Amino acid sequence: MRESQFTDRDEAGRVLAEAVTTRAPELVGQGTLVLGLPRGGVPVARYVAEALDGELDVLVARKIGMPGQPELGIGAVTAGGPAVFDHRSLYQFGLDPERLEPEVERERAEAQRRLLRYRGDRPPPRVEGRPVVIVDDGLATGVTARAALRAIRAREPSRLDFAAPVCAAQAAPLLSEEADDVYCVMQPADFVAVGEWYTDFAQLTDADVEEALAAALHRARR
C-alpha cells in the first residue's frame, strides 16, 4: 500500500473538494454546475458539488478502443459531442479516424443510453453562462477528459474547469488548452494507472451512480 493512496472515492472526493474550494473560493455559492464522469467520477463529484453549494449532474464520455485491442483507449466521445482522438496513437498504429467511425457510433449510442438511464426524464442542466467543473476519479491519458471538456465548451459556460484526485503528470498539462483551470491533488511521477492510487477502487455499477445523484437531488431540495 502506498502512503499517498486514497482510501476510497469518498475520501478522494472530500480531499478534492477542499482543494477546489481553497484554490477557487469564487466558485462557492455561484450556481456552479459539477458534472461527474460515470461511473467513478460521480461519487467524487458529489463532494465537490456539496462543497461548492452547486448542482450535481452527469456527463457521459465513452472510450474509443483500438481495433482488436478495445482496452487500449485511443479516443473518446460523449453522447452529443464530437469524437476526440489521441493523434499520437493514431499515427503510431497507422489508423485513420474514418476507419474508427463504427466504433465511434457504437460508443456514442452507449453514452446516450447511459445518460438516459442516469437522468431519466429530468431535463439537462443549464450550462450557458454558468461556471462548470467536470470531475473524474483520476486522469490517465486525458483523452476522455478532453472529449468531455469540448462537449461542454460548445455550450458556452462562463468558466470551465476540470478536477481529479490523481492525475498523470504528463496528461494534466494537455488539458490547459481545454479547461480554464485544472485541479489535481496528486500528480505522481510514477503514475501507471488510476486504480493504484486507491486502496479500494471497486468497480461501480449504474445503481451506485443513481444513488449518488439521488442523494444530491435530495440535498438540493432541502
Score class of each variant (00 low, 15 high):
Met1Trp: 11
Arg2Val: 10
Glu3Trp: 11
Glu3His: 14
Ser4Met: 08
Phe6Asn: 02
Asp8Phe: 01
Asp10Asn: 13
Leu16Ile: 12
Leu16Lys: 02
Ala17Tyr: 01
Glu18Asn: 10
Ala19Ile: 04
Val20Pro: 00
Arg23Lys: 14
Ala24Leu: 09
Glu26Gln: 15
Leu27Glu: 05
Gly29Arg: 08
Gly29Met: 07
Gln30His: 13
Gln30Asn: 13
Thr32His: 06
Leu35Gly: 00
Gly40Cys: 03
Gly41His: 05
Pro43Glu: 00
Ala45Ser: 07
Tyr47Leu: 06
Val48Tyr: 02
Val48Gln: 03
Glu50Leu: 10
Glu50Gln: 14
Ala51His: 04
Leu52Ile: 11
Asp53Thr: 12
Asp53Leu: 10
Leu56Ala: 06
Asp57Gly: 01
Val58Cys: 07
Val58Arg: 00
Leu59Val: 08
Leu59Pro: 01
Leu59Tyr: 05
Ala61Ser: 14
Met66Arg: 15
Pro67Phe: 05
Gly68Ala: 09
Gly68Ser: 09
Gln69Pro: 00
Glu71Arg: 06
Gly75Ala: 07
Val77Trp: 00
Val77Gln: 02
Gly81Ser: 05
Phe85His: 06
Asp86Gln: 11
Asp86Ala: 12
His87Ile: 07
His87Arg: 15
Arg88Asn: 13
Ser89Arg: 15
Ser89Asn: 08
Leu90Trp: 10
Gln92Tyr: 14
Phe93Ala: 09
Leu95Trp: 09
Leu95Gln: 07
Leu95Phe: 12
Arg99Leu: 13
Glu101Arg: 15
Pro102Asn: 10
Pro102Arg: 14
Glu103Gln: 11
Arg106Phe: 05
Arg108Leu: 06
Ala109His: 11
Glu110Asp: 14
Ala111Pro: 02
Leu115Trp: 10
Tyr118Ser: 00
Arg119Ile: 13
Arg119Phe: 07
Gly120His: 12
Asp121Ser: 14
Asp121Ile: 07
Pro123Tyr: 06
Pro123Lys: 13
Pro124Val: 08
Gly129Met: 07
Asp137Lys: 02
Gly138Thr: 06
Ala140Leu: 08
Ala140Arg: 01
Thr141Ile: 07
Val143Lys: 01
Ala145Ile: 03
Ala145Glu: 06
Ala145Thr: 10
Arg150Cys: 06
Ala151Glu: 15
Ala151Lys: 00
Ile152Lys: 04
Ile152Gln: 04
Ala154Glu: 15
Ala154Leu: 12
Asp161Trp: 13
Phe162Ile: 04
Ala163Ile: 05
Ala164Ile: 03
Pro165Phe: 03
Pro165Ser: 11
Ala168Lys: 02
Ala168Val: 09
Gln170Glu: 15
Ala171Ile: 11
Pro173Gln: 12
Pro173Gly: 11
Leu174Phe: 04
Leu175Met: 12
Glu177Asp: 15
Glu178Leu: 12
Asp180Arg: 08
Asp180Gly: 14
Val182Leu: 06
Cys184Ala: 13
Pro188Met: 10
Asp190Trp: 12
Phe191Cys: 05
Val192Met: 08
Val194Glu: 11
Trp197Pro: 01
Thr199Asp: 14
Thr199Cys: 05
Asp200Trp: 02
Asp200Ala: 03
Ala202Thr: 15
Leu204Arg: 10
Leu204Lys: 06
Asp208Lys: 02
Asp208His: 11
Glu210Met: 08
Glu210Thr: 06
Glu211Pro: 01
Glu211Asn: 08
Leu213Gln: 03
Ala215Ile: 03
Arg219Phe: 04
